[in-house]
Nucleic acid binder design. Structure first.
Lengths: 339, 339
DNA sequence: GTGAAAGCGCTAACAC
DNA sequence: GTGTTAGCGCTTTCAC
């Protein structure tokens, strides 16, 4: 049988509640007693019984707020959030969603302010990639509310941690895949969603750096920016493919893949052009099946939803901060048969 | 507040223990009362509180036995087992390992017999791929002990489920990868560990079938069997590569990769020969880094360790069987940068 | 067949 | 600063 608070109390000759105060660093115990209890607890190798803690914890009825835009990515992340919820709801924890518009910084800020007054127990946020938010998060944190960012980070905001993909690594993986399928030689063009989104920028950098250092016979001929707009993406892709009519490969860091695919198919390049892109949304799956896309790199959105909830829970329940500030999710290579 | 047994008891005008019996299908309640309580519970949407159950469950002190050979795979699986243990030990569950010799059917059988007398609560086993074991498992199951097989299955043995990779799918993925890197044409040879190990046979079949149906320009010239023996593997690989001196690709379903790699390097084929293999053990990682192996397909051994423990726990704690008999772990494509 | 009561380990409210 | 006490939800024992 494991050692319990009750036993420690008996040995120390004090009440259980006193031991409880010592164990949890609560006030109201004399230094003398505190030291004695600590010594005994240590000596006996006391470890809190999770079930006992949970029993008392569950009627705190805490709520974790999820602040995120309503986009493809967060739809997938939600699966992970719900999975985590199943595991922590027994502990009296519930979740409330606050869906914002994708690039609306002001809305996210006002949501955060509201959550302070609502006294939520914790917040998980997929922030707009905008520095203005940083101060709002800082404010939340200063009110004692733990915050975890996911998918996109907000450095120096005081958040507990960031959960997301290692985009630089993902870019390097993409480079290797591209090199393999174009047999280490030829011209490659890059389509990027935005030069100012940190994650996409890193996907580009990782790719370009590895190509330049390891594959002298591969030439990156052009980088095109689409601002994730459908019409622009289609038009610019079409222009690019016509302008560069001897491309071996095309690398897309982000943006609407359906439009890129449309342009490739329209020009009859499905077989000859090798394509590497990101994520595993329905439109990408279709392109994989059609043979337009060769490889896509997934960032495990489910884990990006699941982990933040568990991190916040761990903080609330055990008062433990995560070991690393950056928890990276896997870089998953997918092709047609491995969806 | 969620509805509790206490509330149901009050409404039904019976004792809590009576409600408990009804909820858990225990005997000792009249049909009339049973029906009434059931109706009320249903009506109120009663769901057992996990923490409450756990509190009572934890002093049963159940033990789950893990029966497996001590090989590369199970070393990795153990990480997942320990992770699962962390989650279930609060419920009073502990784990005992029984490491057997790899191809020793008799040892596994006698271990199983012993575990019956020891009255363990559940067993997870990586069985020898041998039909003789089937009856031993059946016997265990007939004693009311739940069994889960992992990594390799034992069909028709009465086990709760099997947790492992979908080897046929893994073979198909390998085929696509190979086709991509040899540009859909050329000669390919296959090295297989054993023609009688179910998993390896399926990896071969999935590969060959997809190549034949989708890639008419790829020819599978030879299949070599190594019996997972180091010396044989090295010698046969060497012979194969010398005999077939215009191979585009080499596909290895299993067996000691270090020896295969040695032969490839010795003949100076590192750059020209494309190689796809399985698993992510240290020797394979080294070959990836050296550029000898292009892709390896991982089967997530950690999940294969983790899931069985959770399945057995779920069965013991909630009396729930898994939904599917075959729980497949992911088919993970890995290359140099994505380890 | 049914009910009363104790107990699992921890926390919190409150009296001293 | 310290102890007493009740209570969280469920299971189990035992008396009736």
């Amino acid at each position: 049988m494991r050692v319990t608070i009750k036993q420690i109390a008996e040995i120390a000759g004090v009440a259980r509640s006193t031991v409880d105060k010592v164990i949890n660093d609560r006030p109201g115990v004399s230094d003398e007693v505190r030291d004695r209890v600590r010594y005994i607890a240590n000596d006996l190798g006391y470890e809190a019984n999770i079930i006992g803690k949970a029993l008392a914890f569950q009627n705190k009825q805490l709520v974790i707020a999820v602040v995120m835009p309503n986009i493809d990515f967060t739809v997938a992340a939600r699966v992970g959030i719900e999975k985590a919820l199943q595991e922590v709801k027994a502990f009296g924890i519930s979740i409330e969603y606050f869906l914002t518009k994708n690039y609306d910084t002001a809305q996210q800020i006002s949501t955060l302010d509201y959550l302070i007054t609502k006294k939520v127990a914790g917040i998980m946020i997929r922030p707009v990639d905008d520095i203005e938010l940083r101060d709002a998060v800082r404010n939340v944190v200063s009110h004692g509310i733990p915050v975890v960012t996911f998918n996109s980070d907000l450095v120096d905001s005081g958040r507990l941690c960031f959960v997301g993909q290692d985009s630089l690594k993902a870019g390097r993986v993409a480079a290797n895949l591209m090199a393999k399928i174009i047999n280490n030689r030829g011209k490659v063009a890059i389509i990027t969603g935005s030069m100012s989104l940190a994650a996409l920028e890193l996907r580009l950098e990782g790719f370009a750096t590895l190509i330049q250092s390891n594959f002298p016979m591969i030439e990156i001929v052009e980088v095109v920016e689409t601002h994730e707009n459908k019409i622009i993406t289609f038009q610019k892709t079409l222009d690019l493919l016509q302008r560069q009519n001897d491309l071996a490969g095309l690398y897309i860091t982000g943006g609407p893949m359906a439009e890129v695919g449309k342009a490739i198919k329209m020009l009859g390049l499905t077989k000859s052009l090798k394509v590497v892109c990101f994520d595993l949304y329905p439109e990408v799956i279709e392109l994989l099946n059609e043979g337009v896309v060769d490889f896509t790199i997934d960032q495990d959105p489910i884990a990006q939803g699941y982990i933040p909830i568990k991190v916040i829970f761990e903080y609330l329940f055990n008062n433990k901060k995560p070991e690393q500030e950056f928890i990276s999710t896997t870089v998953e290579i997918r092709e047609k048969e491995s969806l």
